[in-house]
Design a protein around this nucleic acid. Structure first.
Lengths: 296, 296
DNA sequence: CAAAGCCTTCGTCTAAGACGAAGGCTCTCT
DNA sequence: AGAGAGCCTTCGTCTTAGACGAAGGCTTTG
């Protein structure tokens, strides 16, 4: 790197002042040092940036271009400092938490909100991951805590149950199972479905068990969140499997019917997990205590 | 300047490799030098950037943010080198471009850097102006193109939308501004915030204007998506600035109140403009095509 | 328990980068 | 025409920033 940020700042000052002498002053450098730096910058870029005169300097076309770039760069550096200053002055304690799709959207926000209200000195840095990725990240020490489907976790990861992800079939009010309270999933074999985009662990879990039942569900649409899915279902585009918590919430504002599934696999156990609960830092331990209390 | 471009490039290498050792190799530095530079960077910014482990390093939240910024800066430096290299080797075409502060800091650098990289024979002579001044300069033929808030433009100036930053403050139903339809952002100065995790253009924009108002927002939690942010807000963890579209959607299913901001910076449609797009010289036309492709 | 892997610290050395002073050149004024 | 002013470049000198190798410290793995 044959020039640096001081060079760029100096160049901006020289351009503004139309003078290496005054630009040097502005940059708190000796004239000789400033002159050498500008010369070094020109050498590094292989092009003349200034026309030297006895009444100061003028920018060449290349110099004008460099000035624009230099301003953008320094602007970016200032934004960076400002942003990092926010981190430097922010909350002291932070818990790094990974959650799967259901956890992030349905089970966790209220519980985490309660914790944050009670512990004003702690921040939670939460990210969405697949359950298997959560297992890997926690094993690697890249996160303090996780919220994942239990079946996706290897044995060495410690866990306690937090909630159940009881999958519910949602249909329109006049749907194919109107009046039924529960069915076997196989009874939905002839239905058209609305589902999540296929990247999520939940959708893969559903697809795997459908395949085991010899079903090949046809998806009319794939969407990113449960609200959009339920809107489609309410509009009779198809039926959908969504977590019961999401189904209840959406049923308050949409004409939906909910039908339970008798299948065992439709009832996933969701757990809070860590590599070693005892080894957690104090803020994470406090969060764990809170979540134990909030668990089913 | 207590860090330099070598520091930023080293940090990017370390982040990519998840290892100071391998990052040092990538940057052709001794391990000790790399370790000292990273430490110096953390001292300069006043925040930990890495979690050191015996299997390498992980980024902290601040480190993630710095990584985003560092990539933008190095990207800009590369564009600058490329542009100046063209001057070193021959004659160039130039586009005179005026942008307001938001455009210059948030919306344009990536698009313009991308254009400059792809079109090494074109230079962009960019200057910062207020939106009304941009209108006057374009009318007078003093600039080829502008990036301005649409409301500031007279009718005769041609434009197409490039981006929007229509921000809304969301609070719980019984939040601090219950019953208020709009406020000045400064009135939220005492509030605690829920925000986005990494250095998004949006978050940087908000932070910059907060700083201009002398505010230092405190973030209780940083999350990745607007739904989770709004659930936290609904549970009274804090308030948040989110795009109005996201706020409306979430308010359908969550007990949220939306409060408009009177601040100009929170509520603008941003457009690319010219006196006559058809009459532009070829380099400017190429830039317009590039920006249309980049537009919302 | 030893070895491996990774980061930090220490001591040493080199040269980058700072400065003051002087030289060189052009323009302006007397 | 010559002196003085203004501005940039070059030179010599000095300080310390930044490089390195080596070793220490800690955790994980076999």
């Amino acid at each position: 790197m044959r020039f640096d940020l001081v060079d760029l700042q100096l160049f901006i000052a020289v351009a503004d002042q139309r003078s290496i002498t005054r630009g040097a002053e502005r940059s708190h450098l000796a004239l000789a040092s400033a002159s050498a730096r500008i010369k070094g910058l020109e050498d590094a870029l292989g092009v003349a940036l200034l026309k030297r005169g006895r009444r100061g300097v003028e920018l060449t076309a290349a110099g004008e271009s460099l000035l624009d770039h230099a301003r953008l760069v320094i602007h970016q550096i200032d934004a960076m400092r400002g942003d990092l200053a926010s981190y430097a002055s922010g909350v002291r304690a932070s818990v790094h938490f990974l959650a799967n799709t259901s956890g992030l959207s349905e089970h966790l926000p209220k519980a985490l909100a309660g914790f944050l209200r009670e512990h004003r000195d702690v921040a939670i840095d939460i990210e969405e991951r697949e359950s298997t990725d959560i297992a890997a990240a926690i094993t690697a020490g890249a996160a303090d805590l996780g919220f994942a489907a239990e079946h996706a976790l290897p044995e060495h990861i410690e866990r306690f149950p937090f909630s159940e992800d009881r999958l519910t079939l949602v249909t329109s009010r006049r749907g194919p199972f109107a009046g039924r309270r529960q069915i076997d999933f196989q009874e939905a074999g002839a239905c058209e479905f609305v589902g999540l985009t296929s990247a999520t662990a939940l959708q893969m879990h559903i697809s795997k068990h459908a395949a085991r039942l010899g079903m090949r569900p046809h998806f009319r649409a794939r969407l990113r969140d449960f609200d959009a899915i339920c809107q489609m279902v309410a509009a009779d585009v198809g039926v959908a499997l969504v977590p019961e918590a999401a189904a209840r919430r959406c049923a308050k504002t949409m004409p939906l019917a909910m039908v339970r599934l008798r299948d065992n696999w439709a009832n996933r156990r969701l757990v809070i997990c860590a590599r070693n609960f005892k080894a957690l830092a104090r803020p994470a331990k406090m969060l764990v205590e809170h979540l134990r209390a909030e668990a089913m």
